[in-house]
Structure formats: C-alpha cells, structure tokens
Amino acid sequence: MNPFRKVSLAGAMLAVLAVPGAALAADGGGKITIMVGGATKIIYLPARLTEQLGYFREEGLDVEIQSQPAGVDAENELLAGAVQGVVGFYDHTIDLQSKGKEVEAVVVFGQVPGEAEMVATKAAAQIKSMADVKGKTLGVTGLGSSTNFLTQYLAFRAGVSSSQFTVLPVGADNTFIAAIRQGRIDAGMTTEPTISQLLKTGEAQVLVDMRTVEGTTQALGGLYPASSLYMQRAWVDSHKDQVQKLARAFVKTLRYMKTHTPDEIAQKMPKDYYGNNRELYVKALGASLPMFTSDGKMPAGGPETVLKVLASFDPTVKGKHIELARTYTNAFVDQAK
C-alpha cells in the first residue's frame, strides 16, 4: 500500500471518530455510498446501470452501490449516517417527515411503483380481488417497506382493514418465490423480474398490476412516483456540487434507457442479474421501461397521490401536516439538462 494513502485513510478515520455524524459526510473527493433496496430489482435498475455505463466516473464521483433486501432497511442505514443516499421509494420521504426527519428525493426514476400483487395459483380460486384477502397471509419485502404501504392501502380501498389479514416479510427475488412455492403466503407484492419468473412457471398470477400508468391509476387513483434517489436534506444542502453531479449522471442513464433496446441495456448489466434467464430478463425489462421518467423530474400530482395513500392508513401520517414541497426537489435534475 502507498504509505501516503495509509496516512490519508488513518486521517479520515480520525475525522469520522472526532466529529459527530461525520460518517454522513463525504468531502469534495470522498466516496458516496448509495444503498439500494434490492439492487437486482428492475425498478432500481438506474442505480447499477449508471455505474456500469461509467457515468459516475465521468462526473468525477467515487460511488459505491450497496444493496439491502428491503427499502426500509436502506432507509435505516441512511438515518444512521452509514450511507449518503438511498435508491428506494419516494413514499419514505413523506413517512419520515411525519416522524420529524428531513429527507428529500433529488432524482425520480419511476412514475409508477412497478409492483404487482401476485396471488399463488393454488389460492387464486379464493382470492379474486383484494376484497378477498381477509384471513390470508400476504407477503411484503419488509415491515415498514413500500410494499407494505401499498398492500395495506389496496386492502383498505377494498374494504379490508390491516387487522383482518397477516403481513409476512419475505424479501424479494428467490426468497419471495420460495414463500409462494412453500405456501407460506397466499399472495404478495413483488417486482420484475420476479413477476415474470412466477408467471413463466405458473406458480402465481397477477391480482393487481401497478407496472403501468393505466394499472397504477386504476389501483391508486393517480400516478405514484416510486423509485428515486433520496437523501437527508442537511447533506444535500452541504454537498450541492456532489448532488448535482449525481443528478447529471442519473439523468444521462434515464436518457440512455429511453434510446436503447432492452437487449442493449441487458448487455450492460452484470451477468448475475439475470443468471441463466437472460431472455426472461430482457422480456421483463422491455415491459418495465415505460415506468421510468426520461428526465428525473417529479411527475405532476404524484406527491399528492402518495400522501393520499399513506394518510388513509398510516397513523404516523394521518392527520399530520406534510409539506410536500420539502419531500422532493427538481432543482438538480433541472440543471442536469
């Protein structure tokens, strides 16, 4: 190891120990760690794709992408100061504001959730709509996750209270598939490519589809901005140059996704993202691309829909005054043009 680098690392460690909350910070040339609530989920594709395309490096950024199975776990890492940003659902910014935490989305990737409530084929005869989930066990990625928020709202809208069904955290990808296969859940909410995998094997069917604008509007009453990069407001305010570079890198990626085929995009991704199911991955990617924004901006009316959803059942949000303007900003993506 270069001795000067060793001294530099030691100095950085001392700085972190000496200054409360220093782990939150990264100076002009420091590493930025972004936690993703399930990096292999297609809804969060822009995080890894930006890295693969080299856009972080082009902006002079040192970015590390880490993954947690559920968005709520990534949120906790952000609040603890272990990471500088989260690629997760925008609805966490509203939920956190109701708890006195100032977090804002600085780039919006998805204008819809990209999720589907899947019902196990062996339970499909009993569950034909969300009104039929009384007494059933529904899978979510984690308690307090966005899949949990949406599950509760869909049931609420169908006249079923959260006390009338059981929620079981089962993660995503293979653990979700295993929960369906083993009969531990009757239905559950997940994303691509898991949705396509279950449809291919015939082990589950789509009950509520929120992968499209039309399906989301029907299920939730409007656009539901979802996957986004959100950060603590204090960090954004003190690191505007770095946030601007991040926004520029992500907007480049969103443009790339709009101008390249699913197959071309898949070629850029690590092989372990699709394993032996590349054809299935490309198909799922093609079905998912319309959910993404082209400019990273918050869609008009989106925050209001999210607030309506959360305020209908979340006791921490219900009845609280939420300043939606403080839960997101378009300032950085506007400059990215």
Rank of each mutant, 00 (worst) to 15 (best):
A124H: 12
I177C: 04
Q182G: 02
D173G: 12
R181F: 03
Q182S: 14
I127N: 05
G142A: 08
S163R: 15
L154Q: 08
A131I: 03
L154T: 00
N174R: 15
Q152G: 01
V170P: 05
N174D: 13
S145P: 01
P169T: 01
E115F: 12
V167Q: 15
Q111E: 11
S129G: 06
N174M: 10
S162V: 03
A178K: 15
G114T: 02
A131Q: 12
E104R: 15
G110K: 10
A116P: 08
F109R: 07
M118G: 02
A179T: 00
T137L: 03
A131P: 07
K136W: 03
A124M: 10
T121Y: 13
S163M: 08
Q126W: 12
I180T: 04
F149L: 02
A123V: 07
V140Q: 00
I180F: 03
R157K: 15
Q111S: 11
A120K: 05
A120D: 08
S129K: 09
K128S: 07
L138K: 00
S146D: 06
Q152H: 09
T175M: 10
V119K: 06
G183F: 04
F109T: 02
P113A: 04
E115T: 09
Q182H: 13
S129D: 10
G171M: 04
I177M: 14
A125R: 15
S145V: 00
V119Y: 12
A158Y: 08
Q111L: 07
E115Q: 14
G144Q: 01
F109Q: 04
L138A: 06
F156S: 05
D173C: 06
K122Q: 11
I177E: 11
F149E: 05
A172C: 08
G144A: 05
K122L: 06
P169G: 02
A131G: 09
A125G: 09
M130F: 10
V133F: 11
R181M: 04
A158G: 06
S145M: 00
K136Q: 04
A131K: 14
S129H: 09
A120C: 13
Y153G: 01
T137K: 13
Q182C: 03
E115A: 13
A179P: 02
T151L: 05
V167H: 11
V119R: 09
E104F: 08
Q182T: 14
S145D: 01
E115G: 04
L138H: 02
T175P: 03
N174G: 06
L168H: 11
L168C: 04
Q126G: 07
L168E: 15
L138M: 11
V170D: 05
F156Y: 13
A116L: 09
G110Y: 07
G171P: 01
I177A: 12
F176A: 01
L138C: 02
G135C: 04
T175R: 12
K122F: 13
S163W: 12
L154P: 01
V160F: 12
G171C: 08
A125E: 15
N174Y: 14
S129I: 01
A116R: 15
T151A: 04
T151H: 00
D173I: 06
V112M: 13
N148W: 10
F176W: 11
